[in-house]
């Protein structure tokens, strides 16, 4: 499989990428990382800059042309590839690009989809003796439509306690450039999400999208809220022999 690392994980959260490699290699996959990959282009598209967005679509198609299966540790970025790349190709009036995009979309998976559907696994042999709560990010549920696959994977982790997140389905308020174009509303939504995560009694709030966690974690850190953020891949990578160590990953 080819890892679509995503630009934000590559630059800001490399430990998540290392965790993905760790868990997938443990499960017997041959991981490749196409060196010329860049970004899904969602930031441009969602900000209304379609001409800039389609450049990322072309780069994506070039980078993953030979990939058998493309796996990304982000519901939002995978959702953008699935939902927005065809739209951008059409908008550019480029039928050839649209054809390439359709082929690539059919081979693109979010991490939990790949593990549950392609590998046919729920128990990945992880060990994580902590109390966590899961935030189903909007784009993973409503755009990529990963369903409850992340929760299936979490519940099968040895030693874990998964508690319910109140109002889990509500947006955390990140929203990409929404977080800087409408910072007050974004922070108000995120503050409520942090409060709900704290109320769940969990040590960690887990998600499949580091962008949302950047926002939730940034608010929690500023207000010294007693909750930490963690990407699903890091829990799945954690084992008895090589446990997750907070802070050591960076």
């Amino acid at each position: 499989m080819s890892l679509f690392i995503t630009c934000i994980n590559d630059t800001m959260f490399p430990h998540t990428g290392r965790a993905v490699v760790s868990v997938l290699e443990r499960l017997g996959c041959e991981v490749t990382v196409p060196a010329n990959q860049t970004c899904c282009g969602q930031m441009f598209t969602n900000s209304g800059w379609f001409g800039e967005g389609v450049k990322s679509v072309r780069a994506f198609v070039r980078a993953f042309a030979d990939a058998e299966v493309i796996v990304g540790p982000s519901g939002s970025c995978v959702g953008s590839v699935r939902h927005q790349h065809p739209m951008l190709a059409d908008d550019a009036g480029d039928a050839g690009l649209r054809h390439e995009v359709d082929q690539i979309v059919a081979r693109t998976r979010e991490l939990s989809e790949f593990i549950v559907d392609d590998l046919g696994l729920v128990d990945v042999g992880a060990h994580f003796p902590h109390t966590v709560t899961f935030h189903p990010t909007c784009h993973s549920v409503r755009v990529a439509k990963v369903g409850d696959r992340p929760q299936q994977l979490l519940r099968a982790v040895d030693g874990i306690t998964v508690v319910d997140l109140p109002h889990a389905e509500e947006c955390c308020g990140f929203g990409g450039t929404f977080s800087v174009k409408n910072p007050d509303v974004s922070a108000a939504m995120g503050t409520d999400k942090v409060a709900h995560a704290v109320a769940s009694g969990a040590e960690y709030v887990v998600a499949g999208d580091n962008s949302c966690l950047l926002h939730i974690g940034g608010l929690a850190h500023r207000t010294k809220a007693p909750i930490r953020t963690i990407h699903l891949a890091e829990i799945l990578a954690s084992t008895q022999d090589a446990p997750f160590m907070a802070g050591a990953a960076r």
Binding site: C138, H139, R142, E169, G173, F174, G175, F178, N182, V185
Partner: peptide, 11 residues
């Protein structure tokens, strides 16, 4: 048009 986080709950 920018007054949304594009969470998709409305659809």
């Amino acid at each position: 048009p920018f007054a949304s986080s594009l969470c998709g709950a409305c659809f």
